[in-house]
């Protein structure tokens, strides 16, 4: 049945002009464009008080860590540009995954999913948009880290008589970026799978640790552990000394700790009830 009522579209409700009125048959492809989803998700990361403060804290903690190194570090090695950048990036790698976790869990804990998934019912695309946006933020974070490390090195040169040393291996920079992106992706995966922010954050920090401890306690696991551990290969990745075995460990470790939670979480998300 279509509308039998006259379609007088100019007036609209309460003075707000209506585009058209009466039923029209909707035309076009389902959902909204991916670029619009990216804009939405990017905005949602920074437009809440918690999101803003998390980013500000990451900046402040990074700066504080660098200041401590400049002040107390060994002027011969610690305060060159590359080691400073490594410090900044390591601090960020602890904190950025939390951004990923909160980006995902807010949809459930703050119940914004009710709106998010009515705006775009194809839920997998929302996950992809969040991954892209959180990954982009991780890279932006690394660029900020580069800037802060540069300032720190200048200060070190000025205050502590450290020689100029701007050497940075391109491979190491790439490694830092990759580690950073893997970290937020893992955070998103944990958030997606566990949906509770507290549970996801605690699990993110504890479970891989417990797993390593368990490996130390049970000798039989010793040979398996390196293949299902992400902590160590990520560490090697950040100081830019990856060997072939390290890459293999990174691949399998990411499979277990990043890809698996993301896939399982997405599988659950597209089937679950959003309430």
């Amino acid at each position: 049945m279509t509308s039998t009522l006259p379609t007088h579209g100019v007036q609209g409700i309460q003075g707000i002009p209506a585009a058209e009125s009466g039923d029209r048959r909707p035309v076009g492809r389902p959902g909204i464009t991916f670029s619009r989803l990216l804009v939405l998700e990017a905005r949602k990361l920074v437009d809440t008080r918690s999101g803003r403060w998390l980013l500000i804290s990451i900046g402040l903690i990074t700066a504080t860590a660098l200041a401590l190194v400049v002040w107390f570090g060994d002027p011969a090695a610690d305060t060159w540009f590359a080691p400073l950048l490594e410090v900044a990036a390591l601090v960020q790698m602890v904190l950025f995954p939390v951004l990923g976790i909160l980006a995902m869990t807010a949809e459930f804990s703050q119940r914004t999913g009710l709106v998010t998934f009515t705006v775009e019912p194809r839920r997998m695309r929302v996950v992809l948009a969040k991954l892209a946006v959180a990954g982009a933020w991780a890279v932006v974070g690394l660029l900020v880290a580069v800037g802060l490390a540069a300032i720190a090195h200048l200060l070190a040169v000025g205050i502590r008589d450290v020689p100029w040393n701007w050497h940075l291996d391109a491979g190491q920079l790439g490694g830092l970026a990759l580690a950073q992106v893997l970290g937020v992706a893992q955070g998103l995966g944990f958030g997606l799978l566990l949906t509770s922010p507290a549970l996801a954050i605690v699990s993110y920090f504890l479970v891989p640790e417990l797993w390593s401890v368990l490996g130390g306690l049970i000798p039989r696991l010793e040979r398996v552990i390196p293949w299902v551990d992400l902590t160590r290969p990520a560490e090697v990745l950040t100081n830019g000394a990856m060997t072939g075995t390290d890459w293999a460990h990174l691949a399998t470790g990411s499979g277990v700790w990043v890809a698996l939670p993301l896939l399982a979480g997405t599988w659950l998300l597209v089937r679950r009830e959003i309430a």
Binding site: P30, V119, E120, P121, R122
Partner: peptide, 8 residues
């Protein structure tokens, strides 16, 4: 609903 273009 899931087939609607720009559902909102």
């Amino acid at each position: 609903y899931r087939d609607l273009p720009n559902p909102a």
